[in-house]
Amino acid sequence: MAITNNGSATYEGLGKDGKGHVSTGSGALSAQPYGFNTRFEDAPGTNPEELIAAAHASCFTMALSFKLAEAGYSDGNLTTDAKVSLEKQDGGFTVTKSALHCKGKIDGIDKAKFEEIAADAKENCPISRLLDCEITLETTFEG
């Protein structure tokens, strides 16, 4: 069984002068502005790399939560930040890295076990598996 979700984007005008809007099928994002200025000039709005970062952070955090529950842990908190890097390479732009930083406070677990489970979640979350770039993970553990 495949789970299918959707998003959409429009772009009016071309190149640097164009302006776009991005939406999700759920309505969580609705006509959010994006364009050259939101991607390269810090204008208000979003950009594809920011959306990938949010997707990766949320997917990894959910995967880690499920891995911890499967290992018998039942209480805690997880917070993940993702930084997605876009670099000019070979005449074009490429997403080269997604750096995850996860803070965890899990009752009854030690730091080594938390890091082991987090590493497994990083390798196996669906967005990590999708991305064709370097993925790093740094953890902060509060016992």
Rank of each mutant, 00 (worst) to 15 (best):
T10E: 15
Y11V: 06
G13V: 11
G15I: 07
S23Y: 04
G27K: 07
G27N: 07
L29Y: 05
Y34S: 02
F36S: 08
R39E: 07
F40M: 03
D42E: 09
P44H: 00
G45S: 06
T46S: 03
P48N: 03
E50W: 02
I52A: 02
A53P: 03
H56T: 01
H56L: 06
S58A: 13
S58C: 07
C59V: 09
M62R: 07
L64N: 06
L68S: 10
E70G: 01
E70H: 10
A71C: 07
Y73C: 09
S74D: 14
D75P: 00
G76A: 11
T79V: 14
D81T: 08
D81C: 01
E87K: 06
Q89M: 05
D90E: 15
G92A: 15
T96L: 01
K97S: 08
S98Q: 07
A99N: 09
L100V: 06
L100P: 02
C102W: 05
K103A: 09
K103F: 08
I106T: 03
G108P: 05
G108S: 10
K111I: 00
K111P: 00
A112M: 10
E115M: 08
E115F: 10
E116H: 12
A118Y: 11
A121I: 06
K122T: 07
E123S: 12
I127N: 04
I127M: 11
